[in-house]
Amino acid sequence: MTNLSLDAFTADLERLRAEAEQTLADVADEATLEQARIEFLGAKSGRLKLAQKGLGQVAGSDKPAAGRQFNAVKSAVEALFQQAKDRAATGPANVSAETVDVTLPGTPVRFGRLHPLTQTIRRVASIMGHLGFEVVDGPEVEDQWHNFEALAIPAEHPARDPLDNFYISVANSAEPFLLRSQTSTVQIRVMEQRQPPLRIVSLGRVYRPDTADATHYPMFHQVEGLLVEPGTTMAHLKSVLRAFASNFLGGDVHVRFRPSFFPFTEPSVEVDMEWNGRWIEMGGAGMVDPAVLEAVGYDPDEVSGFAFGLGVERIAARRFGVADIRDFYRNDVRFLEQFSDRGQA
């Protein structure tokens, strides 16, 4: 059985290829895929197999060319088959026991969240850390020296009024302690223990008898920074706060000072930062009052310093769009779960 012309062989191959293309393009599921496999790639009587047999009838001189053509078509059909197979495995029309509805929910793995105030504190501490400020810690139940006297708040000062503080009587102590009303207490404690140069941030809970409302809570968080180094000026204060604000808000943020009054700083200022074209209050700041430096045994002629304080709730409320700061203490998981750390901690 010889005498199949090369042209006829080629025509047969091209027909095979065209039909394979057509058939495999129509494959929609495993079943039709299998039919197509048997028809074209079947080991016994698949059409490629038959075509291979036809190769033997081509005249000897044409055999190499015919062989090349056959191999090219075989590769093409196999590739088409593979494509069809892949399609059948993932195709939307192919829902069966083995395939999955990939839109079904995955096995849930729950992750928690840090409290939004913690996230805010960490962010502030992180930025200040890059500026060389180290986080320090101190007691929340304080004596009056650290909460008042050392901070230039004398006995007759209104800030010491019993109605404005949470006083705590401790049996073996002459004068009552109190829940600290500011984190500046920690600055005093650190300055008493260490010598300049000093860059610290004290942060944590503070307590003032405010009636709870959307912007007040009797317990809240403060972050206070302190830098004491020879030759420190308000220009350093402004530059540090500008670096902080720029990093916290993003972009090149300007800060401005408005004169204010705090017992433990002189001059004292309110700090505003420019945000979306408006000045918003950032916190209080000032140069450490010489009386405070003296109270901790520093020489105000040798060193100077600045201090600033930020209200964490206020920053967090603005950052996260929280209208009522009491929400921070309601601990409703539906609230807490909304605050995913952006990796800025």
Binding site: V109, G112, R113, H115, M219, Y329, N331, L336
Partner: peptide, 9 residues
């Protein structure tokens, strides 16, 4: 999977 709470002192 835990959320951090802050409760009164």
């Amino acid at each position: 999977g835990f959320c951090e709470a802050m409760t009164r002192s």
